[in-house]
C-alpha cells in the first residue's frame, strides 16, 4: 500500500474513532468522563499519601518533591491507560458489535492503518487527561491547599519533554498493537487484556513509587519496560529527577520502544496467520 494511501486510511480511521469515542454523549459529559477517571485516581493516591504520611514528614522538601513526582507519574500514566484499554477492546468491539472487522481486514491496508488511526484517538484522549490532571493538581494542591509542591508547569523543559512523549507514545502504540493482535486470536480475554497489562505497568513502571523499592528480580522486569523510561524522562523534563540521567533514559526508552515495535510486528504477523488459518476475523464470542 502506498504511503499516501496508508496515511489517508489512518487519518480516516482516526476521524471515525474520534467520532465514536466522543459523539456518544454531549460534550460536557464527555469532558467530565475524560477528566474524572485520571483525576480520581490521582486524588485517591495523593490523599492516601498525604493522610498516611507522618506529621513530621508533611511539608518537608522531600515529601513535597515526592508528591510532585507522584502527580506527574499518575498524570502521564493516562497515556498508558488509554492506549491499553482502548486498543485491547478495539478488535472485540469492531468484530462483535459492529461486524466490521472482516471488511476492514480485506481492504488494501488490512488492519494496520486502522489500528494506528484508532490508537491515535487513545493518544489524544490521553493528552487531554494529562493536561487536565496537571492543571487540576496545580490548582488543588498549590492553589487551594497551599502545599507548595514543586510542580512548575511553566518551567517544564519542552525540548526534553517532547521527544520523551513522542517516543513513549510510539512504545505504547506498539504495545497496544500487540494487544490488538492478541485479541484477534484470544477467546474471552478481551476484557482482561487491557486491564492486566495496564495494571502490570502501574505496578512495575514506577508510577506511584520508585522501582528501586521493588525486589531485585521484579526490578529486572521494570528495567525492560518502555513505561519505566517514559515516566523517568518525563519527570526529568519537569526537573523531578536528576536531569543528568535524561540522555541515558531517553536512549533506553528508544531501545525498549524499538524492541516493542519489533515484537508488535512479530506478534501481529503470527496472530494474523493464525486468524486466517482458523477463520477468526468474523468470529463472534459466544457470550
Amino acid at each position: 500500500m502506498a504511503v499516501a494511501d496508508f496515511v489517508k486510511s489512518a487519518r480516516e480511521s482516526f476521524r471515525v474513532g474520534w467520532k465514536i469515542e466522543s459523539n456518544w454523549t454531549d460534550p460536557v459529559l464527555f469532558a467530565t468522563y475524560q477528566i474524572i477517571r485520571p483525576l480520581a485516581s490521582l486524588l485517591i493516591v495523593a490523599f492516601i499519601v498525604i493522610i498516611g504520611a507522618s506529621v513530621s514528614a508533611a511539608g518537608s522538601l522531600f515529601y513535597n518533591q515526592y508528591l510532585a513526582w507522584l502527580i506527574v507519574g499518575t498524570a502521564f500514566y493516562a497515556y498508558v491507560l488509554q492506549a491499553m484499554l482502548g486498543m485491547s477492546l478495539l478488535v472485540f468491539i469492531d468484530r462483535n458489535r459492529y461486524e466490521i472487522l472482516k471488511n476492514i481486514y480485506i481492504s488494501p491496508g488490512t488492519l494496520h492503518p486502522y489500528i494506528i488511526g484508532r490508537g491515535l484517538v487513545s493518544v489524544v484522549n490521553g493528552t487531554i487527561s494529562v493536561v487536565l490532571t496537571l492543571l487540576f493538581s496545580e490548582a488543588i494542591f498549590n492553589g487551594v491547599l497551599h502545599m507548595n509542591i514543586p510542580l512548575n508547569l511553566l518551567g517544564v523543559n519542552l525540548f526534553m519533554l517532547i521527544p520523551a512523549v513522542i517516543l513513549g507514545i510510539i512504545g505504547l502504540l506498539a504495545i497496544g498493537y500487540m494487544l490488538c493482535a492478541l485479541s484477534i486470536v484470544a477467546n474471552r480475554m478481551e476484557f482482561i487484556l487491557g486491564d492486566s497489562v495496564s495494571g502490570i505497568f502501574f505496578l512495575l513502571g514506577g508510577v506511584i513509587f520508585p522501582i528501586s523499592l521493588l525486589p531485585g528480580p521484579v526490578q529486572a522486569i521494570s528495567n525492560v519496560l518502555p513505561v519505566t523510561y517514559f515516566l523517568n524522562t518525563v519527570r526529568e523534563s519537569f526537573g523531578l529527577l536528576p536531569v543528568s540521567n535524561y540522555t541515558s533514559d531517553l536512549a533506553l526508552l528508544g531501545v525498549t520502544t524499538l524492541v516493542a515495535l519489533a515484537l508488535g510486528i512479530l506478534v501481529f504477523r503470527g496472530a494474523e496467520q493464525r486468524a486466517r488459518k482458523l477463520g477468526l476475523f468474523d468470529r463472534k464470542s459466544e457470550y
Partner: peptide, 18 residues
Amino acid sequence: YGILSVKENLWFFSQLYG
C-alpha cells in the same frame, strides 16, 4: 458504525480503499 451517518460510513470505506 451505528453512530455514523450513511455518508460517513461510506466515506470511511472509500478512504480505506484509498
